[in-house]
């Protein structure tokens, strides 16, 4: 019966529940001036946060983190140390989490992580960094020192007639980060 079993279950069971809720926090966004001949499909804001889940950094010591098909199962790939991944699900034991990349699954190939694959990894080797969508609104320079994901915020190529290199920009930079950035010029 349910009534008897649930007390036992309570300590054991945990699922990643918050992913698909009416999650409405403002988030970092990519500003992109995309070159285009047609105005209507020209520059647009590319959303960084189509996946409102937790994200985490791979924190193995020296080796890559193995990715498995099922919790504790067959190895299907690996993720280098320091990479940031999205957490989609946690198994009942809480020890295994299903991770994927910021770009979703499947067809993405990463030059510096050739064996990247989505799948189950051991939670012991992840540092959880909070919700992916809760990054500063309006872009905001990625706050590396605060554990924010250093995803690019791409900026502008454009309807400009002059040829210029595409450049990324951000606004509402973290204040401490701004001070640290300006301080860099003291090191010269």
């Amino acid at each position: 019966m349910v009534l008897r079993s649930w007390t036992r279950a309570i300590g054991l069971v945990f699922a990643t529940l918050f992913s698909f809720l009416g999650l409405k926090s403002a988030n970092a966004q990519v500003e992109d001036f995309v070159k285009s001949s047609n105005e209507s499909d020209a520059p647009r804001i590319v959303q960084n946060c189509y996946f409102p889940g937790e994200y985490a950094r791979v924190s193995t010591r020296n080796t890559d983190l193995n990715v498995r098909q099922t919790p504790g199962g067959r190895i299907v790939g690996s993720i280098p140390r320091g990479w940031e991944v999205l957490v989609r699900e946690t198994d009942r034991s809480g020890r295994w989490v299903f991770v994927t990349s910021h770009y979703g699954s499947g067809s993405v190939y990463f030059g510096s992580a050739p064996n990247f694959n989505e799948g189950w990894v051991s939670a012991d080797y992840l540092t959880f960094l909070g919700s992916y969508c809760d990054k500063p609104s309006m872009g905001g320079r990625p706050m590396n020192n605060k554990g924010m994901s250093p995803k690019p915020f791409y900026f502008m190529e454009s309807q400009l007639e002059t040829q210029v290199e595409p450049q990324r920009f951000s606004v509402y930079e973290d204040w401490t980060n701004l001070g640290d950035r300006i301080s860099k010029s003291l090191d010269d």
């Binding site: 500003e31 990054k135 900026f155 204040w175």
Partner: peptide
Amino acid sequence: ELAYQCLLASAPPSSRVSAFERLAKHCNR
């Protein structure tokens, strides 16, 4: 579109927005 992007990029910086974002980033969902 360039007009819009220029407005976006000219957002005035603010320590308060920054402090708020830092505080709210973990638990505002």
